[in-house]
């Protein structure tokens, strides 16, 4: 899923300065699963905004709405009869949400309430960890299901570097060295030879480096 964190309240409040009618819009997709932008978190943020408003003597109108997704026009469309009643739409979806809202409702101010961080999964309740960098050319089959592009701090294809110690990355003892994990798994499974092969330089054209990306599936295009 796409993982996000709620922006610091101070930043959100700063963004909302001057707006009295606020629609907080959640998303039932990834951000619900990572407990940052689903209906529950929308309720919490709305309550927080109302508390902040009352404290500052403002009678804010803060309403809540959580869409199935914010990354599909048909769901974004569902707000069409509402948006005019608000000064600002605060999206709790990933970075896609506020942009789709802005595109659909160009007259409205659409702002982000979360910082979108990475593609990952829950490694334990309340803890999410990065797994994919969306580079556009998957290489994990070379590395027994582990991605050095996303999970090595230096994205090394011929690691591990000299900073790997006790299974941890040189940048922090809280970060696992993915290359340590790759090497150990290959050794356990008797396939170390795989790692003796030189991995040539990656073609980054499919990654963000190749410019903004688009995926077209001709059989679906109408």
């Amino acid at each position: 899923m796409i993982v996000a964190d709620r922006k610091p309240l101070k930043e959100i409040l700063e963004m909302l300065k001057g707006y009295n009618r606020i629609l907080v819009v959640g998303c039932k997709g990834c951000v619900s699963v990572c407990n940052v932008g689903g209906s529950k978190e929308v309720g919490i943020l709305a309550s927080i905004l109302k508390i902040a408003g009352k404290k500052n003597g403002l009678n804010l109108k803060v309403d809540e709405k959580t869409l199935e997704r914010q990354c599909d026009p048909e769901y974004v469309d569902l707000l069409k009869d509402m948006v005019d009643d608000y000064d600002v739409i605060l999206s709790m979806a990933c970075g896609v949400g506020p942009q789709f809202l802005s595109e659909r409702y160009p007259e409205s101010r659409c702002l982000p309430a979360v910082n979108t961080t990475f593609f990952g999964g829950a490694v334990q309740h309340g803890v999410w960890s990065e797994r994919c960098a969306g580079c556009g050319t998957c290489v994990i089959h070379f590395f027994d299901g582990m991605c050095p592009i996303a999970r090595c701090s230096k994205s090394l294809l011929n690691g591990p570097c000299g900073g790997s110690a006790d299974g941890k990355c040189e940048i922090s003892k809280d970060v696992d060295c993915i290359w340590d994990m790759i090497v150990r798994k290959k050794m356990e499974q008797g396939r170390l030879d795989d790692l003796l092969k030189f991995m040539p330089a990656k073609d980054w054209t499919t990654a963000r480096d190749g410019g903004p990306r688009k995926s077209v599936r001709e059989e679906l295009v109408q």
Binding site: K40, G43, I44, S47, I48, K50, I51, K54
Partner: peptide, 8 residues
């Protein structure tokens, strides 16, 4: 939310 609503 219960706690926040009380404050709110």
């Amino acid at each position: 939310l219960h706690l926040l609503r009380a404050i709110e």
